[in-house]
Amino acid sequence: MIPDAILNQLELPGATYEPVPGGDINRSYCLHTAHTTYFLKINRHHPHTRLFEKEAAGLRELAGAGMLRVPAPLKWGVAGPDQYLLLEWLHACAPVQHSWEALGLSLAKMHGKPQPFFGLAEDNYLALWPQDNTPADTWPEFYSNRRIIPLARSLTDAGKLNKADLANAGNFCKRLPELFPDEPPALVHGDLWNGNLLFLPDGSPALFDPAVYYGHREMDIGMTSLFGGFDTGFYKAYHQSYPLQPGWEQRLPYTQLYPLLLHAWLFGGHYIRDVRNILASFS
């Protein structure tokens, strides 16, 4: 049920709704009015304050790049113990010929526009993890200090990783300058798995649930392959527009370490083993 306090703030008289399945983080609903349809997300306000305000800002950042379609954030706020985000409803359809190629081309164009630094003007979230986006001059500095070490320490403090794992994470970070090719910062979606992608009725792609920042573009590529589901046409079109540097396939585990650390923090289980498998080669 949508709390009355939220319905009152939305000011959509006569709206009907039903829950939307899927997702582990938020309660989601499809709202219908006489004239249009909306997507509504709800979560507790504490401890993840400003969660949806940050998501709305990420959507605006992606929209401002002008390369990829995203749902327009329409209203967000706090009502009682809950926070909410009202979004434009995007009608999902099956991809058509060249849909995946269009996604690859658009993402490559977005990545091809250099950004001023690694980081972002404000912090945000990856799922429920607070992302520290304090700017850094280099990718190794940013990836180490803003991504890998904070999560590895949190997992160690929680007893999910041990001191040897944390030491291996430190060794990994020391080697980052030699592991990643030197490239300018790029705007990345930040959580680009197939569950955050849909295709519109005209076959064009749209993305949602971002965790944006200016980072190494291979972070988005690694995320696309972490859980599968991306057609080969996507990679072919991306490479043709903005070729990845040699060895990108061997670097996939390094880009995937951050989301795997997050999943270990959220869910534990086999994600802890996946993290340890990557870190083991840096013992």
Rank of each mutant, 00 (worst) to 15 (best):
K160I: 05
N162T: 07
A164Q: 14
A164W: 14
A136I: 00
Q131Y: 07
S154T: 04
K160E: 06
R146S: 02
N133R: 03
I148K: 03
A152R: 12
N145V: 04
A158V: 11
A167E: 10
P140A: 03
F142A: 08
T138I: 03
P130A: 02
L166Q: 11
N168Q: 15
N168R: 14
S144Y: 02
Q131S: 11
E141P: 03
N133W: 03
P140H: 02
F172S: 15
S144W: 00
N145M: 08
E141G: 05
D165K: 10
K160Q: 10
Y143N: 03
F172M: 15
Y143V: 04
Y143M: 08
L155E: 00
T134I: 07
R146L: 04
R147A: 01
L155R: 02
P150A: 05
G159T: 14
T138K: 01
A152K: 13
K163V: 12
L155S: 01
G170T: 09
P150W: 09
I149Y: 02
G170C: 12
P135H: 10
G170L: 09
A167P: 05
N168W: 14
P135N: 10
A167K: 10
S154A: 08
A169I: 05
D137E: 15
F142I: 08
D157P: 11
K163L: 14
G170M: 10
A167F: 06
W139D: 00
A167T: 10
G159F: 15
L155C: 05
P150M: 08
L151E: 04
E141C: 06
P130S: 02
K163E: 15
R153T: 13
N145I: 03
A169G: 10
K160L: 11
A169L: 07
T156G: 09
A167R: 06
I149Q: 00
N168P: 13
R146G: 02
T156K: 13
A136E: 03
S154K: 05
G159S: 13
Q131R: 12
N145E: 09
A169C: 11
S154Q: 09
A167C: 12
T134K: 04
D132H: 09
N171E: 13
T134F: 04
D132K: 09
W139C: 00
D157W: 15
G159D: 12
S154V: 01
T138S: 04
A167L: 12
P150I: 06
W139K: 01
A169S: 08
N133E: 02
K160N: 05
D157K: 15
K160G: 04
L161R: 12
F142R: 06
R147V: 00
R153I: 14
N133P: 00
R153P: 11
R147C: 02
F142K: 08
R153A: 13
T138P: 00
K160M: 09
